[in-house]
Amino acid sequence: MEQFFQQLLNGLAVGGIYALIALGYTMVYGVMKLINFAHGDIFTIGAYLGLTLLVSCNIAAVLPPTAAVLVIFLMVALLAALVGYLLERVAYRPLRNAGRLSAVVSALGASIFLQNGVMLIYGARFYVYPDFLRPDFTVHLLGLAVPGVRLLIIFASVVLMVALSAFIQRTRTGAAIRAVAVDPGAAQLMGINVDRIISLVFLIGPGLGGAAGLMVGIYYGQIDFTMGWSYGLKALTAAILGGIGNIPGAMLGGLMLGIIEALAAGYVSMAWKDAIAFLVLIFILIIRPTGILGERTAEKL
C-alpha cells in the first residue's frame, strides 16, 4: 500500500508537469485548430534557459534559493513566451488559411529547427542542473516519507493551473479567448482582435511549457536536447485524453496520464510504461471518441 501511494504521488508530480505542457497544446488547438508540434521543443528551451540563467546570472548567490527559483521561473516563462510568439509569426500565421495539415508539417519543421538549434548552441551532451536548487527536505505524510520537491512540483503546477483557469473564466480577455475558440469569425465581428488573441495564446501556452521545462530540470536534475519529443508527445496524449481544446480536460488528462504511467511502471513493467499509456489512450478514445471532457460537437454540414 505504501508503494501504491508513493507511485500515486510520483504520478501526480509527473502528471502536473504533463498537464502544464498539455495546456499549451490544448489552448493553441482551441483557437487555431492546430497541433503545435513545436511545443515540446519550447519546453526543452525552457529547461535550457533555466540552466543558463542559473549558471550565468548567479542569482542564487544574491537571493535566497526560494526567491531565486521564483525569479528564474518568471524569466524562463517570459523568454519561452517570446519564442512562442515568434514561432507563431514565422511558421503559422502565413498558413492560417491553408489546409490544416500544411500547418502541421510547418509545425513539425519548426520542431526539428528548434531542437537542432538547441543542440547547436549547447552541444549534444546532457546537462546536469545544480542541485543546491533542489529543495532538500522530506515531509512525513500519513506515515509516508515524501520528498519535498515532489510536493512542491505538485503545488506549483496546481497553482499555475488554478491561475490560468481563473484568467480564462473570470477576465474579459479570457472570455475573448473562449469566444475565439468557439467561432473566430463571429468573435471578429463582435470586435475581438483575433490576431491579438492568437498571439496572446502563443504567449501563455509556451510560457507555461517553458516553466514546465524548468520544473523538470529541477525535479530530475538532468536535461538533454531531445527531451522535448518524449515529453511533448506525452503531453499531447494527455491533451487528447482529456479532450483537445478543453482546458480542464488538459489538466485532468495530464494528471491521469502521469498516474497511469507511474502505476504501470511500478506494477507492470518499466519498459512497457509508455506503451501502456498509449494503450489506455486508445481504449478511452474507443469508448469516448472526443476524450474524457471533450464535447461532442455536431458536425457542420
Binding site: 514565422v90 510547418s106 519543421g109 519548426a110 520542431s111 526539428i112 529547427f113 531542437q115 537542432n116 547547436l120
Partner: peptide
C-alpha cells in the same frame, strides 16, 4: 537545422 527551416 536547415532542413527544419526548409520544411517550414
Amino acid at each position: 537545422l536547415i532542413f527544419g527551416f526548409a520544411m517550414m
